[in-house]
Simulated assay, not measured.
Amino acid sequence: MDEPRIAAWDRRVDWPLTGLAVVFLAVYTWQVLQRSLSPGAHEALDVVLTVVWVLLGVDYLVRIALARRRRRYVGTHVLDLLILLLPVLRPLRALRVVTVIGVLNRQLRDDFRGRVAVYVVGTVTLVGFVSALGVLDAERDAPGATITTFGEALWWTITTISTVGYGDRYPVTFEGRVVAATLMIAGIALLGVVTASIASWFLANIRSTAAEAARITEDELRATSAQLTEVLAELRAVSGRLAELERDRPTRPSA
């Protein structure tokens, strides 16, 4: 592996980070869907979200510090950096919810590798739910908004991620359109991941079946070879006994 220190760090922090991501998502969901929160409660939830976001940022910085080739690591993890930096901008605060996608998706991939259906369903559900929350948070108080309830946000998410796009619901704010663009890109990427995962699963199964068939054939050949060796040995033994009997048989006197 190119980065053994990062791999060791991942093994230590994957589950704690997953727990933080779940907390982040739960708190953000509560903050978005519960409109009756007092200003004090809303601020308290904001503090929790900020603390979790900072810890995820610390994780990213630790990975850079552990990397052998830091510039290469940053260059190959630009999306992680953008996910952490974009929510800092006030107009894009709803995008802070996407900070949990990378962590949770990594855990799904690691836990369910090979189980394509579970991985795909888990990823689609996670991306769709997060996108619905983000667009609702951005849109519902905007003038002329067509997405004002969570049900409408879910419907918009489903039609967008499936690339159907009926157009009956659409974002009108800049922040909502950024969420939409992110979801569109995620939908295309997800389609590629699904296709690649299914192809990989089929290839793995074909290789496994071919290897098993080759092993069985090899075992059968060994067994057949052993049986032939035994038969040849028995034939040699019989031939030897016949030769002995032929030698021991008395010779008839000539007339």
Rank of each mutant, 00 (worst) to 15 (best):
R63Q: 15
I64R: 10
L66N: 07
R68C: 05
R70G: 04
R71Q: 02
R72Q: 14
Y73S: 04
V74I: 11
G75C: 07
G75Y: 07
G75M: 07
G75F: 10
H77W: 09
H77S: 04
V78W: 10
D80I: 00
L82R: 02
L82P: 01
L82G: 09
I83G: 04
L85F: 07
L85R: 04
L86H: 03
L86W: 02
P87A: 12
V88A: 05
V88W: 05
L89Y: 09
L89A: 12
L89Q: 11
R90H: 06
P91N: 04
P91Y: 01
P91I: 01
L92Y: 08
L92W: 07
R93D: 06
R93S: 04
L95C: 04
R96A: 14
V97T: 04
V97G: 00
T99C: 07
G102A: 07
G102D: 05
G102T: 04
V103D: 08
V103M: 09
V103A: 00
V103L: 13
L104S: 04
L104N: 02
N105S: 15
N105T: 06
R106V: 02
Q107H: 08
Q107R: 15
Q107I: 05
L108S: 11
L108F: 10
L108A: 12
D110I: 06
D110R: 14
R113T: 02
R113F: 14
R113N: 12
G114R: 07
G114S: 13
R115A: 14
R115L: 14
R115Q: 15
A117W: 01
A117I: 10
Y119P: 06
V120A: 15
V121I: 14
G122L: 08
T123I: 06
